[in-house]
Design a protein around this nucleic acid. Structure first.
Length: 689
RNA sequence: GGCGAGGUAGCUCAGGUGGUCAGAGCGCAGGAUUCAUAACCCUGAGGUCGGGAGUUCAAGUCUCCCUCUCGCUACCA
């Protein structure tokens, strides 16, 4: 069941954005712009296509954020769902339906899906005892529990491991356990969870992905899948002990919800159901008919869910088609740095829409022609400006302006009757007729960057045609010739109006207005097939500029804004953690802190972050393993004075026993910094108290 | 450390199955032009395709080693 040859319909999905923040250019370039171009193209060809999206509103991150901000999860998701939905609409992302996973219809759909798998015996069940925090009203993950180690008696062992004796523990083994969230004493509760045994689908996945889609899926997607399959698949929990999400709809599911990655992709289905209900249509063919081509647009971080887990779920359920392709993009950087919601390093869509009003297409074009299709790419404001000024304005907009201005000047805005076609004219018209095929070829293969360039080549062709034929000269000597030239030029302009629609929908509409082309007319194939889109005698509308130049000042303003963010981050980046609970002087006095000197340092083999140090503590020379290899070269720290906690229980790291700890802090960039005496001549072994 | 994806002209990037594959756009230099948003059009300079070794008559294109970047993962009290 390889690639579908001639689909009878298309179901196109775009990754559900997580509602813990607004949309930025990374999301757009990676997922929403290419998905939108693809569906607009399919619609222009008259294909039966639905474009499905929605907000992903469950999961721990949202419930944590709500707790932190002292509001309900619903307030968080309502806020961001609103921002996201509105900005998508204004930006022209043409979803047929944009739903949300908190919608009742999704809860019902996901519940039913789970129940079906449950009844079919597709899940494994496992019951364990876990610690439960009564006052926080939730189960505690292992590392949120501290208590006394049953092996060595250390009083502050974590739920997963004792730092003193190094032994691995279960949180339930701890003596006198305490919740680190509330400090209260947790109780023991039995809890049952359901697992999807992915290994059952390994053979099927291997064939379906690595054989059937060997040639049509992108290398990065195939590579990721192969990596997962070669590692061996294991059962994945599909439920969680949480209060925010979709309740587990089977016996024993009280107080539990579906794990977010289980419910989210089902959101595509429920959003389709919602659409069908509203439109009075049947949703099932879009997910179950073999002639349906299902395409998931996602970022590279989502590959495993869309290529391994969701297909396994669909396969287990039965009756569903599987994705024909999952064209995952890489990541977009901004001015040389990774995009980051928490560090506010981003161009936010809702802000762009306010600051560059009516210029949706400029961002669409800039992101398309520099899309991270095969590797991570960099977005710079300078490139954005250049794309606009040198391409959209100078080539596309300028060509349209030249044609319409001349037509109004010579013929009062009426398409002239061509007199006699010369070879150049016929060649130009033939070339234009070839463009729908060229663009289709790129778009069908998900090469949107290439499609953007080809579109611009069509405008280039128009400019060259005018430059070569020079109607402004011939108008004095050979007016008949000019009629033919302008007729041809107008056909190029109309082709641009039609073929630019997927990538530049707003400009396409504007241009259709200028040319008085029927905006509803389904012309994509007509560009190749029809004699002329603008027949002689047709009257154009008012001439108007398609794009405006972007001045240096506007770009500088954006760069200043980013610079300000950098400065703010320098001060705000470190999240000041709250003060820990009060300890007694005796507690403090237990720590034996000494001045020491690093006398040897080398990298720990087979570890990225660890350095093995020999430290002169004044008492002895001992080995300390420290996780600082990313901040320092071994050679640069030899001879460094440091502060050492010398009576920390030894612990083995990668087989080497570490006999103490070096005190560190970090600078605003997150780089580690030694805590050391501010005079060089302090002797090793001096105590710190 | 393991796995995955990348490292191609100043910049951003294309280059199925090895043999016009050394390219495009921007930027730069020169020219031409004035219908057009000082735009368009033409010409040109520019790269030992991250480094090294190998397979081959022939390698960005295959193999091995090294190196750098990004992602996942391990290890980081």
């Amino acid at each position: 069941m390889a690639q579908i040859k001639s689909p009878s319909r298309y179901t196109v999905t775009a990754a559900l954005p997580y509602t813990n923040g607004p949309i930025h250019i990374g999301h757009l370039a990676g997922v929403y712009v290419p998905a939108d171009i693809y569906v607009r193209y399919l619609r222009a060809r008259g294909r039966d296509v639905i474009f499905i999206g929605g907000s992903d509103e469950h999961g721990v991150a949202i419930s944590m954020k709500a707790r932190k901000e002292g509001v309900s999860p619903k307030e968080i998701i309502d806020k961001y769902h609103g921002i996201i939905k509105d900005s998508f609409a204004e930006f022209g992302i043409s979803f047929d339906n944009y739903s949300r996973t908190s919608a009742p219809i999704h809860h019902r759909t996901a519940s039913d899906f789970f129940k079906k798998l449950y009844k079919q015996g597709d899940f494994l069940e496992e019951e364990t005892e876990q610690l439960y925090d009564e006052s926080a009203d939730q189960f505690l993950a292992d590392r949120f529990v501290v208590g006394t180690c049953p092996k060595c008696g250390h009083t502050e062992a974590f739920g997963d491991q004792c730092e003193k004796c190094g032994s691995s523990l279960n949180a339930t083994d701890l003596i006198d356990p305490k919740s680190t969230i509330t400090g209260s004493v947790p109780s023991l509760r039995k809890t049952k969870h359901w697992f999807l045994p992915l290994e059952r689908y390994e053979d099927f996945l291997r064939k379906w992905i690595l054989e059937d889609h060997k040639t049509d899926w992108k290398p990065n997607v195939l590579g990721q899948c192969k990596s997962w399959l070669d590692d061996g698949l294991r059962p994945r929990a599909v439920t969680r002990d949480l209060d925010w999400g979709i309740p587990v709809p089977v016996e024993g599911g009280a107080g539990k919800v579906l794990y977010v990655w289980f419910d989210a992709p089902i959101g595509y289905i429920s959003s389709t159901v919602e659409w069908a209900k509203r439109e009075g249509r049947d949703w099932e063919p879009y997910w179950k008919d073999k002639g349906t081509k299902l395409v998931h647009f996602i970022g590279k971080d989502n590959i495993v869910f869309h290529c391994i887990i969701f297909p396994s779920m669909l396969k287990a359920h039965g009756g569903y088609v599987l994705p024909d392709n999952v064209p995952a993009n890489e990541f977009l950087n901004l001015e040389g740095n990774k995009l980051s919601t928490s560090k506010n390093w981003a161009v936010w869509l809702h802000e762009y829409l306010l600051e560059f009003r009516g210029m949706q297409d400029v961002l669409r074009y800039a992101l398309t022609t520099n899309a991270p299709e095969t590797k991570d790419n960099d977005f710079t404001w300078k490139d954005f400006q250049a794309r606009n000024n040198n391409e959209l304005v100078a080539i596309f907009g300028n060509f349209i302006n030249r044609v319409t201005v001349l037509t109004h000047k010579y013929y009062q805005g009426t398409v002239p009757q061509p007199i006699e076609f010369k070879n150049v004219d016929r060649e130009a018209l033939e070339a234009v007729k070839g463009f729908p095929g060229i663009l289709s070829d790129s778009l069908e293969r998900y090469r949107f960057r290439e499609a953007g360039q080809e579109l611009m080549n069509l405008a280039r062709l128009g400019n060259k045609y005018l430059a070569d034929e020079e109607p402004w000269k011939l108008i004095m000597t050979d007016p008949d010739r000019v009629r033919t030239i302008m007729y041809v030029a107008l056909q190029i302009a109309s082709a641009l109006a039609v073929l630019s629609e997927p990538i530049l929908p707003f400009s396409s509409a504007k241009l259709k207005g200028i040319l008085k082309l029927d905006p509803k007319r389904d012309d994509w194939d007509g560009v190749s097939q029809e004699e002329a889109l603008l027949p002689a005698g047709h009257t154009l509308g008012e001439s108007e500029l398609l794009f405006r130049k972007i001045e240096d000042g506007e770009i500088q303003k954006q760069l200043d804004k980013l610079e300000a963010t950098k400065k703010t981050n320098a001060h705000m980046y470190r999240e000041t953690s709250p003060q820990k609970e009060t300890i007694s002087f005796d507690d403090f006095a237990k720590m034996d802190l000494r001045v020491g000197t690093i006398i040897e340092a080398e990298k720990m083999p087979k570890a990225n972050k660890l350095l093995v140090l020999k430290v002169d503590t004044g008492l002895d020379v001992r080995t300390i393993v420290s996780g600082i290899a990313e901040s320092f070269d071994p050679s640069e720290i030899i001879g460094k004075k440091v502060t050492v906690l010398v009576n920390l229980a030894p612990r083995k790291l990668r087989g080497v026993e570490s006999q103490g700890m070096i005190l560190m802090t970090r600078d605003p960039e997150g780089k580690l910094v030694f805590m050391n005496p501010d005079r060089e001549q302090v002797d090793n072994g001096e105590t710190i108290d």
